[in-house]
Nucleic acid binder design. Structure first.
Lengths: 149, 149
DNA sequence: ATTGTTACTTGCAAAAAACAAGCTATTGAT
DNA sequence: ATCAATAGCTTGTTTTTTGCAAGTAACAAT
């Protein structure tokens, strides 16, 4: 990593990390479209070129926004996944979606999704995050008795 | 305007409009730092160059995110202001601020601001917007009696 | 009348993106 | 064991965008 930040203004900091035309699209693929593999990103409709994709994957990994690991079932495949830092960009992406849903006359966002952004933003965020959360080891059991099925 | 959208995915649409390293910084200056003039933008600490600034101001105006008008007091000065479409990007910027506040160890965001993002996001948004809203003509008076000071 | 300011524009070099091809380590099929 | 296919990249080359310096037109201030 060579780059310095232009400033420590938080907007500027954010833009230095993901303020380009591709980084958030890759993260969208990973988080909202559940894509995991290089070829899947390459096939996205916006048509990223392979060198740019390789570059952005590396940058996102360097910034700690995504992580990669080998596919246990297939040694030639690599699986990309979001880190917590990456998942914390969900609210940013959802607000972009809300804005585009309002101003793109031909937007692909459904009315239902827009409505949910207004009515249940937190639930939506939790739902999107949940699929990436490790199956959680149960915390210290509550003292209240619970019936088991 | 020559450009087409890469797709109607809302993330992609948003990035096509403001997904570069400068557009949101200019909007930050206008909305959060109350800057209005070309020179003020030029003087921002990130150091935008003049041709890029001119280009982005034009794009932002073409996209309906900012508007320009002549300064009534000084014919050679032009004043830039956010439109409603621009103000509607406040939530996006606030979420970027929240993220950077969390992950930039040297962030310029105060603890108080971060706290307010969590505790009173809507109030914060209203407060930021309010300074750009036209002094509103009073709406139809409410029927409930109100005492006047 | 001269000098300074403001909001740009223009020209050029450097950096980044897009486009096209090639390379290497698995695989799976024969 | 060999061979073609596939996945994940690299490596050129061209095109576009950026950064930097200088210049200009319209006004303002002295």
């Amino acid at each position: 990593m060579k780059k310095q930040w232009r400033s420590h203004c938080p907007i500027s900091f954010g833009l230095d990390v993901f303020g380009d035309r591709w980084s958030l699209l890759i993260l969208r693929d990973i988080i909202f479209k559940e894509k995991k593999r290089y070829q899947e990103f390459l096939n996205s409709e916006e048509g990223i070129s392979t060198n740019i994709l390789a570059d952005r994957l590396k940058l996102l990994e360097d910034h700690g926004i995504i992580s990669k690991k080998d596919d246990p079932d297939n040694k030639k495949q690599i699986l990309y996944a979001p880190t917590k830092k990456g998942l914390d960009l969900i609210p940013v992406m959802l607000e972009i979606i809300r804005w585009s849903g309002r101003y793109d006359l031909d937007t692909a966002v459904s009315r239902e999704f827009i409505a949910r952004l207004s009515n249940d933003l937190d639930g939506l965020i939790r739902e999107v995050r949940s699929q990436f959360e490790k199956p959680q080891r149960l915390k210290k059991q509550r003292h209240k008795k619970e019936s088991r099925k």
